[in-house]
């Protein structure tokens, strides 16, 4: 039935498109009521990428300064907490407030132990980047065959 790989690829693409349509349908539906199901659970969304000697983690933290973020690591346990507190601008009338406010915390269990002394964190365009090198014991080791 499928003679080329691109046929299969296109089939999945079409399914994605359908999902996208359905997604946009549900956001259209919820928007007028001001509830944001997706965003409420979606704040501080994160991605984890793994390579041989470490992890790279990305978290969405729009509008946060580095002073208001707190990153803690112990072994393979990672905790991110902070508070986002947007002041209502003085003398303005409010039409809409959809952006999340308040304190939050999220913890992760990483697949391996991390060398906490060499962890680096940076903040760019509202995304927190964490570089987490694996601890020596957790690193993959080359085995020579005798």
């Amino acid at each position: 039935m499928f003679t080329r790989f691109s046929d299969i690829d296109r089939l999945f693409g079409t399914m994605d498109l359908l999902r996208q349509r359905l997604d946009s349908l549900s956001t259209d539906y919820t928007r007028p009521y001001g509830t944001r199901w997706l965003m409420d659970e979606g704040f501080l969304r994160g991605n984890l990428y793994q390579s041989g000697d470490g992890f790279e983690m990305r978290l969405e933290v729009p509008g946060m300064e580095k002073e208001s973020l707190d990153v803690k690591i112990q072994g393979n346990y990672l905790e991110i907490s902070g508070s986002r507190d947007q002041k209502l601008p003085e003398g303005y009338k409010v039409h809409k407030t959809e952006r999340v406010n308040g304190t939050f915390s999220r913890s992760f269990t990483l697949p391996d132990d991390v060398d906490s002394t060499r962890v680096e964190a940076s903040l760019k365009d509202g995304i927190l980047y964490l570089t987490l090198p694996k601890s020596e014991a957790a690193k993959p080791r080359q085995i020579t065959i005798s």
Binding site: G63, V94, E98
Partner: peptide, 19 residues
């Protein structure tokens, strides 16, 4: 997600667009 504010002089809009 957006916040919209208004006063006598202007309309102010904030939009979260991380990344």
């Amino acid at each position: 997600a957006v916040d919209i504010y208004e006063n006598e002089d202007e309309i102010l809009l904030y939009a979260d667009m991380p990344g």
